[in-house]
Write a protein that binds this DNA or RNA. Structure first.
Length: 287
DNA sequence: AAGAGGCCCTGATAGC
DNA sequence: TGCTATCAGGGCCTCT
């Protein structure tokens, strides 16, 4: 589920729910996530008051008083759920919703507030938590990552310079967080389709217009996805309403065998594996 | 420096 | 029905 748009949707809901509240207690049922949760985690967060919930790329950043932070990455299968004693049945959105649909297994971490519980669920345990104790360390944490697609630093100069001499497929770079932060496999495929660029084209072979297309379509598609509440793939079937809906607008992702959705294009959507990831593209207009 | 590949883990689904 | 194989939205690490 979680690429930048989905993480942003979670951020918005989480921020509304927990800003200005204090964590009363932290319960950890399984410390063995992608990285082991440190022993000091519970005591560090206890009684800390939340100023706001931020996000960089696919990382949630809970901002506490006194320059303390907790970073959450959802990995491939992480979701955040809330139990609200006051509004037990009101949904917010797919990966952040209220109690009747709380999974029975894999609830690894709980933040307890007054009248409120925030629960982290993650079957594959590719997600992780980190604590950070000052602003300098926070900056350092993301220093080696590329700009977000929305950033002014993600511009033609940057992309042309970066792609120069790069002999990898262009799609690999959209997935490379050192080049641009926040894009995953779904949106990489969609961005290249809208840009009419073959995913297997070598980055150094892209012309200026193609680079510009990648830049503007990255911004456009991620913003559209946020506006639609993200994409809900392989989600719990019994949740109605408040799902993200961008999956209905996929032009190529998981559309192999279908006719190309571009008006007047006679192509067929194909699927090929590249770097262990499924790659979808039109064999006609993306050539 | 850049690129290819393996690996962490569980669950859903397809094929026999 | 029940087995096995494959694949999944991510990112880190190692080897060449």
């Amino acid at each position: 589920m979680p690429e930048l748009p989905e993480v942003e949707i979670v951020r918005q809901s989480l921020h509304k729910k927990i800003k200005k509240k204090s964590i009363k207690k932290v319960i950890i049922r399984n410390r063995n996530l992608r990285f082991k949760i440190p022993a000091e985690f519970e005591s560090f967060l206890k009684n800390k008051k939340i100023i706001k919930v931020n996000r960089f790329s696919k990382y949630l950043i809970i901002h506490f008083q006194n320059e303390n932070y907790c970073i959450i990455h959802l990995g491939m299968s992480g979701t955040i759920h809330i139990l609200d004693k006051k509004k037990p049945l009101k949904f917010t959105n797919t990966s952040f919703y209220h109690s009747p649909f709380l999974p029975k297994k894999h609830n690894h971490v709980e933040f307890m507030f007054d009248n409120l519980k925030v629960i982290y669920n993650d079957p594959r345990r590719f997600g992780f938590f980190e604590i950070i104790k000052n602003y300098q360390d926070l900056k350092k944490r993301f220093k080696s990552m590329g700009p977000e697609p929305f950033s002014d630093n993600f511009n033609l100069n940057y992309v042309i310079k970066y792609f120069k001499k790069k002999n990898k497929d262009v799609k690999n770079f959209l997935l490379d967080q050192k080049f641009v932060s926040g894009i995953g496999n779904i949106y990489a495929n969609e961005i290249l389709f809208v840009s009419k660029i073959n995913p297997f084209k070598k980055a150094k072979r892209l012309n200026e217009k193609e680079c510009l297309n990648i830049i503007s379509n990255s911004k456009k598609i991620l913003q559209q996805a946020i506006n639609r509440g993200g994409s809900s793939i392989r989600d719990f079937k019994d949740i109605s309403g408040n799902k993200g809906s961008f999956q209905k607008e996929f032009k190529v992702y998981q559309q192999d065998g279908a006719n190309c959705k571009r008006p007047n294009c006679e192509g067929i959507i194909k699927k090929k594996i590249s770097l262990n990831r499924s790659t979808f593209f039109c064999n006609f207009c993306q050539n």
